[in-house]
């Protein structure tokens, strides 16, 4: 295999595996910046995956190649609606954030499979006919060398995810909304005193995590698993949560962490095709990403610091 071909294989599969993590970890960042811990990302991704597959199977004939992108929207909407459960529980009903997130994680696969059984009469769907496949970015792919590596036959959703990461960084750190969101996550009382609506800001943080988590799930379903069953989303949500913490609650950090996880996961998958790695026992390739993560976390990052009021309910004095 030529070096070029090898590099482009590694890059494209890294992007494929990173894309869902990027979306979801940034979603988590919005939620936790507003002060709502979201361990329910896994469940939200599951609902997004469910919705996108159902939409895809139903409308593939009408929309053709545009179907996966429209299904992404379906996943986003359903993820957002589902995340409202978490918002209502934590913000309005003062529930413990971990409990509510666990409910989301228990509920999502059960509800998804239940509905699949009602709709299709069996526990998993048919494979979808229109998936993301590989996209070639027009224009950029003409750049010599780099174009071929990064923009030819690459993952469309991953590039969208990277744009979302940059936009999210801008929103969180450079806009009024972002400042307000961060302030209710750090010190809700002070924010309230200054006239901010803590509940509304926290709702928007959670809903953004639902939107992006739903997209993340839809990306998994339509570029990796290609159908929906109870095992479509197994652990990606927790990986995204880890990426969010790893990225220190910063969208660009979350992007970097997700790319790192995506690279190591993809090496476990494509390692057998790469010279040098194909002699390593597969178990080492399988566990390497997780061992590296722990090592990097311990030796290079150390203490991670969550937003100060993350997970703390704000109860306004009556």
């Amino acid at each position: 295999m030529s070096l070029m071909a090898m590099l482009s294989l590694v890059i494209s599969s890294t992007l494929v595996y990173s894309a869902p993590l990027i979306f979801t970890s940034i979603g988590g960042t919005f939620s936790e910046r507003s002060g709502v811990v979201n361990v329910g990302l896994e469940g939200i991704m599951g609902m997004g995956a469910f919705a996108s597959v159902v939409f895809n199977l139903t409308f593939a004939d009408q929309f053709g190649a545009a179907t996966p992108w429209l299904s992404l929207l379906a996943g986003a909407v359903v993820g957002l609606v589902f995340s409202l459960l978490h918002a209502v529980a934590t913000v309005t009903l003062r529930a413990d954030h971990i409990i509510s997130g666990t409910v989301i994680n228990l509920m999502a696969p059960a509800l998804g499979v239940f509905l699949i059984k009602v709709l299709y009469g069996k526990g998993q769907t048919e494979p979808i006919t229109q998936d993301f496949g590989y996209t070639t970015v027009p224009g950029l792919s003409k750049i010599p060398v780099l174009g071929q590596l990064f923009f030819e036959k690459t993952s469309g959703p991953a590039w969208l995810a990277i744009l979302v990461a940059v936009a999210s960084w801008y929103i969180i750190f450079k806009t009024k909304f972002g400042l307000r969101l961060r302030s209710v996550g750090e010190n809700p009382q002070a924010a309230d005193t200054l006239g901010l609506n803590v509940a509304r800001l926290r709702y928007s943080g959670v809903m953004l995590s639902g939107l992006l988590g739903g997209i993340g799930g839809a990306v998994v379903a339509q570029s990796i698993s290609l159908n929906y069953s109870a095992s479509t989303i197994v652990g990606q949500g927790f990986m995204a949560m880890a990426a969010m913490i790893f990225g220190r609650w910063n969208p660009i950090g979350a992007l970097g962490a997700s790319l790192f996880f995506g690279l190591s996961q993809s090496l476990a998958v494509i390692g057998a095709q790469l010279p040098g790695l194909n002699n390593v026992p597969s178990i080492w390739l399988q566990i390497a990403p997780y061992v590296f993560t722990i090592i990097v976390l311990v030796f290079f990052f150390g203490k991670t610091k969550a937003p100060k009021a993350d997970g703390v309910n704000y109860i306004k004095a009556a």
């Binding site: 178990i283 997780y290 990052f301």
Partner: peptide, 24 residues
């Protein structure tokens, strides 16, 4: 221990260890 000694988030470490132990 990693949390106590290095401040590494136990959430991340336990998630990663779930995978490591599963594959092992």
């Amino acid at each position: 221990w990693l949390r106590a000694q290095f401040g590494a988030s136990e959430v991340i470490v336990t998630i990663m260890m779930n995978y490591i132990l599963l594959f092992l």
